[in-house]
Amino acid sequence: MINYNGKMVAQEDASLSIDNRGYHYGDSLFETLRVVHGKLMFWEDHYFRLMASMRILRMEIPMSFSPEFLEEEILSCVKENGFEEQSVRVKINIHRLPGGLYLPQQREIGYMISTSLLDTPFYINDESAYEVELYKDHYVASGLLSTLKTNNRIVNVLGSIYAEENDYENCLLLNEKKSVLEALNGNIFLVKGNSIKTPPLSDGCLNGIIRKNLIKIIGKLEDFDLKEESISPFELQKADELFVTNSIMGIQSITKYRKKSYDFATANNLRAKLNTQARLG
């Protein structure tokens, strides 16, 4: 079942208008989060990112869209699908209502909430082979819009096809300045000695929820120095570790980039702290 504008609809019966602006113009965004045994992981962070993104896109936020209202809408969808005692991936889609061409006739929005099961309630340690390569066919523009989870993800789609065709588990995206921006499905962190780097939002990387929480966690550690700085492709093969983060998988260690293989120790340590933060948050 899908929660479509507050009504539960069977997936096979759900449909969007042919005039849907998300389809025509990418005038839409989405939020993806974990729900574990009825608890929304990092919900406050997800909620405020969603609200901020809607404001940036000049969407009219309904008066009813309080954190409590949306939490209830999510949990009702989880319950309707019988997933109350399981680990669930939840996706919230927001689109501006039909009307107009590039200039919308209205600012009001519609929404859809969908769910799917996850294998584990925790972020797990996965040290299986995970090789990546740079995706250089197209670049992501630096700036504020690239930090949002809008439906304009064609570079990610093409990069994913490239990765599959060339037997890579993932690709790293570049911005127009040729700085390493992020992976296809999450933020990137680079470990070198006691220094951990991740690109700044000004480079155009996604304003990720796990990125935000890891920055807080690392900032409290005496053993590491966190830097939000641009990453050059030349730094990748000099790093001790590389890992990718997002709200569903948590932390995914990269094992190989070209001729360089990487360690997992820092990622494993941070994953344990992230799991603790998720339970407490």
Rank of each mutant, 00 (worst) to 15 (best):
L174E: 00
E165S: 07
L40C: 13
D126W: 01
I196W: 01
M112H: 03
L118H: 05
S128H: 08
K256C: 15
D45H: 11
S15M: 12
E80Y: 07
L145A: 02
P104F: 05
S66W: 10
P62A: 10
F234A: 06
M59N: 06
N20Q: 10
E31D: 15
M63Q: 12
G186D: 06
D126N: 12
S232I: 03
S232R: 03
L70H: 04
D263N: 15
I18A: 12
G186F: 04
R271P: 08
E182V: 00
Y23Q: 04
S53H: 11
D203T: 13
D225E: 12
K216P: 06
G26M: 03
W43L: 11
D13G: 09
A163K: 11
L75K: 14
F264N: 11
K39M: 09
L134V: 00
P233V: 07
D13A: 13
K212G: 11
P67L: 15
F264H: 12
Y168T: 02
G26P: 01
N3C: 09
A52T: 10
P104R: 10
D13E: 14
K149F: 07
L181C: 09
I2S: 00
A267T: 06
E108M: 08
I196N: 05
E71S: 14
E71I: 07
P199H: 09
L181V: 02
L236H: 07
R153G: 07
E108P: 00
S232G: 04
F234K: 09
N81F: 13
N268P: 00
E228Q: 13
K227Q: 14
G208K: 07
V9W: 02
A129T: 11
V157K: 04
E60Y: 04
F122W: 04
Q11I: 06
I254S: 01
D137G: 01
C77Y: 01
Y262Q: 01
T198G: 02
R96H: 10
D119T: 10
M59Y: 06
E127D: 11
E169N: 10
V244M: 08
L97K: 15
V157W: 00
F30S: 05
E72H: 07
K216E: 15
C77L: 03
R271L: 15
P121G: 10
L57W: 15
M51C: 03
S247V: 00
F189G: 00
D263Q: 14
E133A: 15
E235F: 09
D225N: 12
E133V: 02
Q105H: 11
